[in-house]
Design a protein around this nucleic acid. Structure first.
Lengths: 218, 218, 218, 218
DNA sequence: AATGAATGAGTCTTCATTCAT
DNA sequence: AATGAATGAAGACTCATTCAT
């Protein structure tokens, strides 16, 4: 491991990772065999073990990289924002965009959470996400911009809404991913009983009237 | 299948279902072998196939029964309520209570959603839950009790928050399940930016000041 | 075994034998499970072992009975005939009729010959048949009615033609079984190069012009 | 399947085929387990599935190859013959020689005909053989060399005699396979009532006086 | 006579992993 | 860097047979 790879080697490695990601996502981690993966790439079985320690390690690597990437996206998209509420909303939108744009990885997360072997790795990444959001929420609360409630719990709520709606979108949706982001933001902001968006003067977020076509058929 | 069972038979069948549920939840569906299940009950391998068609069918049965039970709980707990918002909140609380009270099944849901073979079955049950909630939301909207926004999307949001917070609770929580219900209701109602609960005169739901111990450590 | 059975018991036993015969014939001996047999009759598994020692013994019993029945048919149909050639031909016809009339048993013979466990039993019965025919052939030879050649070999030839043509008939035929008998007799008598039947004045056997519809499509 | 095999691989594959053929023939297809086969070759269980899709596919391959080989033998041995009757007799002899020389495959045919799964494959090959023979018979008939009778039926008769007598030879015989060929030809030509061979001037086939030792003890 | 229940060895097959080349 | 070959434990599932009731 931590082998010194030539450029061709790095390419092959990526091929395998991509193939594995696709198969894991479509068939499941367990039902996908190493033979499936190397077969899909068209190489011999030994190649797999040249690049990866084991099937499990490969999956963990995919998971870690995905979580890192997701976080990077969220950071990038909030880097320029100064207003705490804007940052929260920006993070939500970035999360939604990423998930909708990486459905395979989104699905992998789903599975990874469900099995002990990988749940630990997932928990770490998720905790980071939650804690990122919670920090922004804390700031917003301290600034009096939102009511004072447990930021951790709120952050979990945001994650839950994001996960659920992206999942539903992936199953049935066909609209603009950006609209899904707006929808998630709207729900996270106001809940089901909160004021409708157009009443909150302090936000430039789109009105909750946004209704992507898919949300009706879900 | 559809066998005529004696009372002893029905007992054994339950034993196997329980054992399987526990193992599936703790080790995962795939890593749990039929041998593990029958071994845990202390019977021969053939017994499993006397009572179940296959490992897969057993899992599907567990899933279906769990979904049915969850729905029944929600229906029961909202049967007496007439106010639409009360019904929504009652449904949320019942859902939370059920999930926290059935952590194994909750975990099984998590896995089932992630693998195509079972995702279909899950989607059906989830769609029912969402549509139940959406109906109540629709009524509340028509009654002018909550702002007019897509009920399906809101229902998904509620489910997402419920799922995420019960999961977090199961991982770290140690407080009163009822308090988790209150917390989920609060987040679902108001979002992160909505009014704090004590400002909403029309509800007797506890204030968001509720903070189960676990929510801080997640 | 050799149990004292009530009339109801004897009935059940027959049911099981019939069911087993049918299944063995259509699916094969090995692929047919005891469960299939009792299931087909609609009784519990224990019943089978009340009436039979084992699956193997049951099969052997079916085999023995069938061979006995076939031989009885041949004897009956030749009992009244005095002319040795008539007896030979009568035996052939009776054999054909029986086989065409008992396709399931015919198929069981086919399998039984192929597996050592049952081949022994089959050999005995077949040897009896061959020896029966050989005796008649011997007499016919001694009487100068047919050329002097090894009766055993001739008898085997007769059996071979009978087996092959009945099999072909069972696969494709739809004509009158009696005609198949005539055909087999004709081939056995004359071979492919022998005189055509109408030239042999000493026989009342139908002419070889007999051509059951199926023989053309085989 | 359709794998790229090294020469060592091809060797191993043959080993497995041979071992399987032997076991299938001596113990039967069903009673022979994959474990028996690989055990007999002295390799791990997985090796079997490296070379073959399944036990069933392997058997079908053995069957197909055997049928092809048998047909090739018959064609080769009749290629030089111009006289239609000679061709018929040559084919018979070649068939007998092949069967006596490949007793394991001969036995496999026997079983394969008896079970639906394989019967289809067998029927095809058998039909080819029959139709080959029928063609020659047709020609001989048109040439006025043999009486005009249904060639298909005659061909079936020939096959039946061949099958039966080779089987009997395999069970008890110990003479020269060539003599069995002569015997089968003789029976097929003349039937039990036909002229004895020495009366047919147009053939150099040995007289029916040929009596392999085994034919007496069958 | 009959049933549901149980057994457990045995079946085919898969698969992560290793290795010689 | 890569391949075909091999391993062997493990997996799901079957089945003839037995037994308590």
């Amino acid at each position: 491991m931590a082998r010194q790879l030539t450029s061709k080697g790095r390419q092959r490695r990526s091929q395998l990772i991509n193939q594995a990601t696709r198969r894991f996502a479509s068939d499941g981690y367990h039902p996908t065999s190493v033979a499936d993966i190397v077969g899909g790439v068209g190489v011999g079985k030994g190649v797999f073990y040249w690049y990866f320690e084991s099937k499990e390690q490969l999956f963990l690597e995919i998971l870690r990289d995905a979580q890192k990437d997701l976080r990077r996206c969220q950071r990038n998209s909030t880097a320029d924002l100064t207003d705490p509420v804007d940052r929260i909303e920006g993070g939500i939108r970035a999360g939604v965009i990423w998930m909708v744009g990486n459905p395979d990885l989104r699905r992998l997360f789903e599975f990874a959470r469900s099995e002990d072997t990988f749940a630990k790795a997932m928990k770490v990444g998720e905790a980071t996400l939650v804690s990122d959001a919670a920090q922004h929420l804390r700031i917003a609360i301290d600034a009096g911009r939102i009511p004072d409630r447990d930021p951790q719990a709120l952050a979990h709520g945001i994650l839950g809404v994001t996960n659920q709606l992206t999942m539903a979108y992936m199953d049935h949706g066909d609209g603009d991913p950006a609209e899904v982001g707006d929808l998630v933001v709207s729900i996270c902001r106001n809940g089901f009983a909160g004021l409708s968006d157009d009443l909150t003067g302090d936000s430039n977020s789109p009105a909750m009237t946004v209704k992507p076509t898919w949300s009706r058929s879900v």
